[in-house]
Nucleic acid binder design. Structure first.
Lengths: 353, 353
DNA sequence: TTGTAGGCGTTATCAG
DNA sequence: CTGATAACGCCTACAA
């Protein structure tokens, strides 16, 4: 690979002049200027990002740390971030943490040595991002947090309006006539899971419905969790007629469990998801879900980061993107709407607690 | 961030000595050695990858170029590559091409300036990878091609056995008694699409079945394509009783089209996919598919690359991973099956799972 | 307007 | 075995 010195020789100018025309850092007169450009063209020269970064004390790389690219929600976020980054000349270094915060720390520490232009992070469980981000910020490197927030996070963030999304979804179930609603939440130490539960509870409270604790099941954000917890919910008496799942993977597990139990969705039980993944429209029945745009989460985060780099020093921003309720076939009114199974109805007193 | 000079000062040794203990490039005696290590620990020092790369003329970054992380098959490949890379101290720079070969060229040219340890590429449509890889190879940088191969590719590659996978899948359909088989292929300039069609044809030929050209439809590897081409196939007379789809996304589109047409799968028409994506088990009916492990494709590619870097200079390797036929509910014998009788024996015990 | 030279943080070479 | 010192390729004062 040619270097600047060779380009200078080819164009018959000095090294500094080449740099000047490449970076527009000084007006170079026409005869030389084009000679340089021609030489660059001819040699297919591209400046070493390494040397440039070393000298400038910052590179065009953006570190992106996510739990797991294999988890269907995250690729969209990554893609959104990459599109914005790429079009501005930045590149992404992708790191998976598997929700392991010690792996996250390794990435956080190492990424610093690339002098990245910034960091976009979807925190792992029990993330220690807050303390580590501090050292980035001291170095003038932006860090934006996406989708969920670690403990005590006060920096820039881009999240969905989980609370409102969950509230609206739950409202919809209530309006259909459901009164025995259950929810299967993601890990409640994650802010997004907690907020969704918050929205669910608010809607329940608004409807003046009592919510006994066994109707709230916490699990991991995956199919297995949804499956296991649904089996528990289905054994409850009275059985819930609707389940609000913390995300689509949980909803998927719920769907499978309901089928296994010999029940029908939505006739016997309604299921509502969150995320509106692509798979939501191909399940059987297709899944009603709270739609949040992962892509937009990604583009917004990247733009925020680039603004910071351009010198935006305003106070921390917390951008919240609204959700949309996407109704499909997994929700319906409860069976025989005002439950006529009187024996079941009597039991309801038992959860008076 | 502390640099080596400061560590040297802290430990009361010279800069060179610090480098020596960090890289094991010379035996440093015990009193100093531990002092250095302690200083490193204390300062949380990590060497600048930029400076190191500049000096060593190579970094610990691996460029990974893929069509689109949003496409459900690719994240697994990326994850496989990342896992192997990470555990060996390498990091991934992720680039999406959108199957646009001019975007691919941009990435190829720019990645070189990071002096990457190697490149893992899933080529775009009409990829010009072959010529560009040449310049990488001259610089001693390995390039391995995954999933599909560009024109005239003669370097390292890791692919699935598309031909055999398609052949086995088609054989299965034939053994169920289907005689009017159609296929919807991906873009035939992509080697994987072409090989799958090859396997399909070989099975048909083996069964001495005529295959008229309108029973072979070519399209893009997505749902829309599968949907549109299925509608065409369903209008043919006689209508095919089984469709072998070039991948699961096409199969998904086919499923939707069949349903729209008021036909039932698998009673009226069988559908076979390829890839065995996660979504295959949640569709209605669940999708029979040729399973290939994207994750394994990724790990294998990364390992191959790292071997090269360790000095393996043997001739180009073409690693081919076997597939597995994963049977679910989207295939069944054809309607009015004329073969309850003789030849339907399970003579092929093959490798079906 | 153009050229020169110093230095970013490392590694590697070569004296001591 | 240890410690200077010269690159690596680039940018940028500063000098011409």
């Amino acid at each position: 690979m040619a270097n600047m010195q060779e380009i200078a020789k080819m164009a018959g100018v000095s090294l500094g002049t080449v740099s000047h025309v490449l970076n527009n850092t000084a007006k170079v007169r026409e005869p030389k200027r084009t000679r340089v450009l021609e030489a660059v063209q001819l040699a297919g020269y591209q400046p070493s990002q390494l040397a440039r970064g070393l000298r400038r004390d910052t590179t065009n790389m953006i570190g992106m740390i996510i739990p797991d690219i294999t988890n269907p929600f995250f690729p969209a976020v990554v893609r959104g971030a990459e599109d914005v980054a790429f079009s501005h000349g930045y590149r992404l270094i992708l790191c998976n943490t598997d929700n392991d915060h010690s792996k996250e720390i390794i990435h956080l520490n190492e990424l610093r040595t690339y002098l990245p232009a910034g960091l976009i992070v979807i925190p792992s469980n029990f993330s220690d991002l807050t303390t580590h981000a501090e050292s980035y910020r001291r170095a003038g490197t932006g860090v934006v947090c996406v989708d969920r927030l670690p403990k005590n996070w006060s920096g820039d963030s881009v999240t969905a309006n989980n609370e409102a999304g969950a509230y609206n979804a739950t409202r919809h179930l209530l309006q259909l006539g459901h009164t025995r609603l259950a929810t299967i939440t993601g890990p409640l130490h994650l802010t997004n899971a907690k907020e969704r539960l918050g929205g669910f509870k608010r809607a329940m409270k608004g409807a003046k419905l009592h919510l006994s604790p066994e109707y709230i099941q916490e699990t991991t954000f995956d199919k297995q969790g949804g499956h296991a917890k649904t089996l528990i919910l289905l054994r409850l008496i009275p059985r819930p007629t609707a389940i609000f799942a913390g995300n689509d993977m949980i909803a998927l597990g719920a769907l499978l469990a309901v089928r296994e139990a010999g029940l029908r969705c939505p006739e016997d039980i309604s299921i509502m998801g969150f995320d509106d993944l692509d798979l939501a429209e191909t399940t059987n029945p297709s899944l009603s879900s709270v739609s949040q745009s992962g892509y937009q989460l990604g583009t917004t985060a990247a733009r925020l980061l680039l603004d910071r780099r351009e010198g935006d020093t305003s106070p921390a921003k917390h951008i919240v993107l609204e959700t949309l309720l996407n109704l499909r076939n997994s929700v319906a009114p409860p069976p025989e709407a005002p439950q006529d199974n009187s024996s079941m109805k009597r039991r309801r007193g038992s959860k008076q607690k």
